[in-house]
Amino acid sequence: MKLNVNGDEHEIACSTLAELMAALDYEGSWLATAVNGELVHAADRDGWRLRDHDRIEILSPMKGG
């Protein structure tokens, strides 16, 4: 499946958002996720099925003004 994760194209075998994150070694309670411009709560990642060409954003706390 072709997926865009944080702006980078990936060809990866996974069916859910949680599986994608595990495959790419994303872990931590501080991560926030969105798929195709919609927030996906942490609790919903296990059941969130991905589709070809989905755009995924994985964000993390950062300094800011």
Binding site: N6, E57, L59, P61
Partner: peptide, 22 residues
Amino acid sequence: VTVSLRRETAGGKAGGAFFELI
């Protein structure tokens, strides 16, 4: 204090470390 959200790199822990500091 103000903070932001930015893309995390795969396997990255920078966000977690920053959050802990804050």
